[in-house]
Design a protein around this nucleic acid. Structure first.
Lengths: 200, 200
DNA sequence: GTTGGTTTTGAACGGGCGTTCAGATAAATC
DNA sequence: GATTTATCTGAACGCCCGTTCAAAACCAAC
């Protein structure tokens, strides 16, 4: 024990997780072998077990870290009225997910490869995220600003729509990420905001 | 050759595909073995090769059949102005996808397990589907009914939102499928229809 | 430069993989 | 009921899997 700064394992651990993230996202958890991950890191397969007890835990920790990061980052979306918070949520969701395509992909596609206990934990974290949006929609509805009648259904609809950006958006294309954020915010706003009389 | 009505293979072929569909959706293509599929059918693994040349083709044909069915069924969504066709599309998409959760799941999750040529074919079919919605949005925009400025982006947003229903909707829950269709149609309508003056 | 802990290797374990195929079985045809 | 297809079995092929572990290599501390 008593690791010193700069020891090998301080750098190898992250490299293992990064390789696993890349490969799991590219080929799927079940299709990637520990030997492939080891080769990407430049090590023999047995050495991986210094950094994870098994393959399942490696997957689980990638997903859990991603969700925890998501929840932590979202805390900065902040205050204001429901409309402002909704705009913040939309722009944040798009930017955060765009910055982590591999982790997002895994978090959505590999749920079925989690053992029940691990699945439950990830689902709990996801529900916490969804609840934030749900609360924004409820607040806006209570204030008479949003015409949302079913905040749960609406939050699922919004999140699915926003997450879909990751399937088609690529840097350097016709639209910048800001363009996309603007357009999606416009769609979400029209979707939930009940027009005040006289604004048309 | 010269198969007679009622021969064994007339019934075993579909049973193989049904078992593969179920298992691929449940556990993922890479995690399911030919022996598991065979067991579900009640046959030895070798017998499967009377019905498919290999595992990859089995997956591909499941996805292709699903997409072809989708495109065929969508042709019945029909005519009318852009608003009516958009409503038809929304209700159709939700109903069709709800009736085939396993095929939908596979069609979205197993793209990465397709060989390049097979991937290209499935992608082409998917693009044809998306183009239908895109055209509806363009028509509505041209008619001044929709406020859509980017029909491609909007069609992706709508499809992602609608497909998301499959991840949470369950029969026998709080909402009926008709409830869900109504709510989603309301959201899509508000999202794209530019309100006529005086309707507020 | 020896010590003592940390990390890696390389081989092995038992098992499952997709696929093939000769031979057995079943079903349809005459 | 003999013959001809169609279908299935059961074993085998070569290969890869996740994981373990003794022995080797490495490396900071004294």
């Amino acid at each position: 024990m008593a690791r010193t700064a700069g020891s090998h394992s301080d750098i190898t651990g992250p490299r293992v997780r990064a390789a696993a993230l890349r490969l799991f996202a590219r080929h799927g958890f079940a299709a990637v072998s520990m030997r492939q991950i080891a080769q990407e890191v430049g090590v023999q397969a047995g050495a991986l077990y210094n950094y994870t007890p098994d393959k399942q835990t490696l997957l689980f920790e990638l997903m859990r870290d991603h969700m925890v990061e998501l929840l932590a980052a979202m805390r900065g979306v902040g205050a204001g009225d429901a409309l402002a918070r909704l705009e913040g949520f939309v722009r944040f969701h798009i930017a955060f997910h765009h910055a982590r395509p591999d982790a997002v992909f895994i978090a959505y596609m590999e749920l079925r490869n989690l053992e029940p206990a691990n699945f439950a934990e990830i689902e709990g974290l996801r529900r916490r995220y969804e609840t934030v949006l749900e609360q924004i929609l409820r607040d806006g509805a209570a204030a008479g600003v949003f015409g949302v009648t079913d905040s749960k259904l609406s939050s699922w609809a919004v999140i699915a729509m926003l997450t879909g950006v990751n399937t088609w958006f690529r840097d350097g294309g016709r639209l910048s990420l800001e363009d996309v954020q603007d357009q999606y915010w416009g769609m979400v706003r029209r979707m939930v905001v009940v027009p005040a009389a006289g604004t048309v």
